[in-house]
Amino acid sequence: MAIIELNNVCFKYGKKTPYEINALDNVSLTIEENVITGLIGHTGSGKSTLVQMLNGLLKPDSGSVIVDGQRLWEKPKKIGNIRFKVGMVMQYPEYQLFAETVREDIAYGPKNMGLSPEEIEKRVARSVEFCGLDQSILDKSPFDLSGGQKRRVALAGVMAMEPKILILDEPAAGLDPKGRREILGGIKKFKEESGTSVIVVSHSMEDMAMYCDRVIVMSHSHVIANGSCEEIFSNRELLNNAGLDVPEITNIVNSLKNIGTQLPDNIYTVDGAFNFLLQLYKQGKGGTQ
């Protein structure tokens, strides 16, 4: 079932000035419930603008945004309420930390929701765990933490609001491979245990292939594809036209194919390639080929 629906959404920055920029041009799409959807596209393709439409940070010039059956901007004064349903983690969220302790910072969102202190305490503890942090961190100052820890605290601050839809703009940007795996793995775990629908904006094809169920491709203010991982990542032409690359491993698989190895089209993760090659190797040893 579709949890988010966009119909003919247009948006321009700096309207009626010499700096007018078209950010979204007649975009229509649906996003499925309870899956991780990846949003990819080159810099300036409109990804960030699109996600800011979904929680009412930006208002479309025309067209409609329907989230969970509710049409946004019907009552502009109540737009704040949608933000409790659609949690958004911006790029480099560690720069939004402000409180004296990690506990207070994570509690900021739930407090704005008007929850009881007991409920807030419970949610803070739970979200800290999802993000792979130790409970002892709660009484520290957020400014004393390492970069990766700050990022996770900021993530926990949004997760503690327990939104129905969680949007993450480049959640793993600037982290080392271990940090990337931990953050993205934590998000996947969070989705599986809470049933949240997740939207991840990223540049990294590898991460997308590893963690996403569905992928949306944007290019020059348009959505040019919306499909399953297999459909998108096996379509090299589409990705190249969007100024993107297929995952590194797909290139390797393709080179193998070119020298005559028999491989299927849908291998786009390192694990997948590993398993398949292992199988092939065993077959070879068994003497079938």
Binding site: Y95, Y108, V158
Partner: peptide, 12 residues
């Protein structure tokens, strides 16, 4: 950017 981030956390 920061305003948007805090708005997303329900700041008013």
């Amino acid at each position: 950017k920061i305003m948007n981030a805090q708005k997303s956390r329900g700041a008013d």
